[in-house]
Design a binder for these strands. Structure first.
Lengths: 201, 201
DNA sequence: GTCTATAGGCCGATAGAC
DNA sequence: GTCTATCGGCCTATAGAC
């Protein structure tokens, strides 16, 4: 915890960490207060309620996640496999710094539909997004959406599982790093492989 | 709710459904009692505590999930791509019947480490599992674990997300069915494509 | 702004009647 | 076995002193 934060910022930083690890219900105001080194009553003083604090934190996290995603996917000046390369690279950095982020957002996507609905409804239609057009150029017969699903799946899902099982000591940290480092390099190649081998459905 | 169940079974069936949808904390004893059509006190009479009821339900669900997985992956009489084909097919059926199952288990993998540790520690070593050997036969240079991760990722992750976003009405149910039906057919082909295109790391 | 004290609600568990 | 009534703990929120 940095010492130059004001009380409001301390609360938000601590809350972000603990909500991400434990979710809304299992996080108690006292947990946040202890982590922030403040009195629990201050949480209500600054944020009115636990729920409003949570919403503020959630919005930040959604922004962090999608701020990585959309600018890359929708930049027509970046070629398809460069896009995938950059996307994978950025998500690997993001999840390394925020190991619970993917899991947390997955959870909230399920629990907290109101907050996500607004965001999803504001996205441009799929067929207008640059990467979707690029998939179609390479192979007009394929379903671009399926490839987007595949890229996201093989990028994000392993982080969710790896983080969940990290406490089980099936692999040590070095092994996990090696596995992910290899994935970072291979995912664009795997996607290429999927595309080449793809007949009309 | 079937009418020929005894009270204990009614409670467990109702609990399985609601715990799967909402998780442990957000599920109240009263929710289960209402769904089962019984008095909330009976939950404690039969299962002693909410937590013990949850554990009983969780064990069943882990059994359902892994009961699909391991017999297929470890059967040396089934060829590699037949394995993948069967695996994908079975999981698609399972998740269609239990839309929240993958999400629920993902969650508990994170929250409920004690219950999973025992199970994971009892698995055979990776290199002894039939499908891992078969990956190595096809291409000795590849890392089989990575392909297992890829198969599980592109199979399971889309169900987690699709279910979570189903309330958002981005796609209607027919579209979602079509997308998943295509995935069911394509996943083995995609995996083949990944393998062919894979140099030594 | 920050603290202590406590109100007030919710919920799991149990006692005890039937 | 099943019900009603209630206890007791936990936790969020707030009143009020400093």
């Amino acid at each position: 915890m940095a010492y130059d934060l004001n009380t409001e910022e301390k609360i938000k930083v601590a809350a972000a960490k603990i909500f991400e690890e434990k979710g809304f219900e299992r996080t108690k105001n006292k947990d946040i207060a202890d982590a922030a080194g403040i009195n629990p009553a201050l949480l209500n003083y600054y944020f009115r309620s636990k729920e409003k604090l949570f919403d503020a934190v959630l919005m930040d996290k959604i922004q962090t996640f999608s701020g990585v995603l959309f600018p890359i996917l929708n930049d027509p000046n970046v070629a398809l496999f460069d896009k995938i390369d950059i996307l994978v690279d950025k998500y690997f950095k993001l999840f390394k710094e925020n190991p619970h982020l993917a899991f947390f957002l997955m959870n909230e996507l399920q629990n907290n539909k109101a907050n996500f609905t607004r965001i999803i409804k504001n996205l441009p239609p799929l067929e207008d997004i640059s990467i979707v057009k690029q998939f179609k150029e390479i192979n007009p017969a394929i379903n671009s959406l399926q490839f987007m699903i595949n890229v996201m799946s093989i990028t994000i899902f392993p982080f969710i599982v790896a983080n969940a099982i990290s406490a089980y000591e099936v692999f040590d940290n070095n092994e996990i790093d090696t596995i992910f480092e290899e994935r970072r390099k291979m995912i664009p190649i795997w996607i290429r492989g999927m595309l080449q081998n793809n007949p009309v459905k």
